[in-house]
Design a protein around this nucleic acid. Structure first.
Lengths: 248, 248
DNA sequence: CGTAAAATGAACGTTTTTTATAGAAATAAA
DNA sequence: TTTATTTCTATAAAAAACGTTCATTTTACG
């Protein structure tokens, strides 16, 4: 069996089970133990898995986060309503920050006729903005695989040279006392920085994000206005902490 | 069996399976091992597949499949030769800068098994690197429409926090006295900065770029080594100014 | 036909990959 | 804790695959 084939097989096993035993891989591939050890070392160095005593374990963040594609076709209608409401807040001459995420991506088509400059940390957004010929700046930083966004310390540093009239952010959790939260700490840092640099910030969420708490704290509720399609009953408890815009 | 027929069969095998063993191809075609080796070398140079120890694997960079029956584009072939020569210079653990351009893009598939970190200012490169799961940092800056690259003063500032073991650059003009040149001053600034920050720099050009002068000066010839498919006669006059690597 | 160019297959030394093995480290059992 | 067992790393030997060269065959073309 070819090296590449073995590597593929190992990664497939890891996609199904969180941990895989050395013995299992040896049986499945028919290769010697030495060879599998070497494979595991190589795959670990390439960042595809983590070696543990007796085998290997998957390397993706334990914090579960549905992949970009999975997310995109859920709640399409809500996203568009939210995106439209957000776009209506943007006026000519503004400098706009667009965070990574499918909801913010949905804003782009509504921006085509506006004379604005956009800053983003998202690769898909940058591509879409390019397509719509909207003047764009991209924040530098480490490219995160699962969200195709630029994150981390370098991204924060790269953002500090800009100032925004308005920032639009996606978010995984919105909670009355815990505020805005998101799974990845490095993404949280970027979102937090965007809020700091913007005169006014908006968080775009569908109803499934309300009352949720994710791992990393981004900011308290008062730091941004919430734009959502959730009903007024659902958002009532948030209104005392910050402004809430109903996009329906 | 005719050469064309064999090539066709090999590509069909690769369309079905991600990797194909040498032995399998030999059996299927009835040709000798030597002949299949030659076939694989040719198909790799033409950019249709990637050779691996023991066989071949599909090439993901190739989005559309140009008919292999026609003589494949001469420049595509040259780009791949240059890209391969460049990739051979990259070792595990290196921090690598990849400039925007189609030649540098062609390097990416050859990087898959290397444990490296890449920095780039190109959106298409960032996407491809993401696909190949290579750890990537993106330089921030203004997004230029025509080249889908990040350029300008902000890009330069964003780069200054990095240091590279090696940088690979595309270039529009290479000239004995005028050095390296490119049309856009803002791109020239980025290229110049990359050269400053790298321990060693390589300029990747096919023969059509030699003896050409473009608008913006990037650096003198001695600042970088030239990798090209041009003949030794064509490159002779450059050898007195800087190192020249023949990729053929 | 006959010659030149291109393609093929076998041989051979070199490089890469795999396997086996022995001692160290980690885990489990006594 | 001490001992036994498993798993690990490092290294050397074996096997497989590689590129190169060259004689032979096939194809192209006058």
């Amino acid at each position: 069996m070819l090296t590449k084939k073995r590597h593929q097989l190992i990664l497939e096993l890891l996609a199904r089970e969180e941990v895989v035993k050395m013995q299992t891989i040896v049986e499945q591939t028919g290769a010697s133990e030495s060879t599998i050890r070497r494979d595991l070392s190589q795959l670990e160095e390439a960042g595809h898995l983590r070696r543990v005593h007796g085998g290997a374990t998957a390397n993706h963040m334990q914090i579960d986060e549905p992949s970009y594609i999975e997310k995109s076709d859920r709640f399409v209608e809500e996203k568009n309503q939210i995106a439209r409401a957000a776009a209506d807040l943007i006026e000519d001459g503004m400098y706009v920050y667009l965070d990574a995420g499918t909801t913010t991506l949905a804003i782009v088509p509504y921006l085509e006729q506006k004379a604005i400059t956009v800053v983003t940390n998202s690769l898909p957004l940058a591509n879409t903005l390019l397509y719509h010929r909207i003047p764009t700046f991209v924040v530098g930083g480490q490219l995160k695989h699962s969200t195709q966004a630029l994150v981390g310390y370098n991204a924060r540093e790269g953002m500090l040279i800009y100032h925004f009239d308005v920032a639009f952010l996606g978010m995984n959790g919105v909670h009355p006392t815990q505020g805005f939260t998101t799974p990845d700490p490095e993404e949280a840092l970027v979102k937090k920085t965007a809020i700091e640099l913007a005169k006014k910030s908006y968080v775009l969420v569908d109803e499934t994000k309300l009352d949720e708490i994710s791992f990393s704290r981004v900011a308290p509720l008062r730091a941004a206005t919430i734009i959502t399609t959730a009903s007024n009953e659902q958002t009532a408890k948030y209104s005392q902490y910050t402004e809430v815009v109903n996009a329906k």
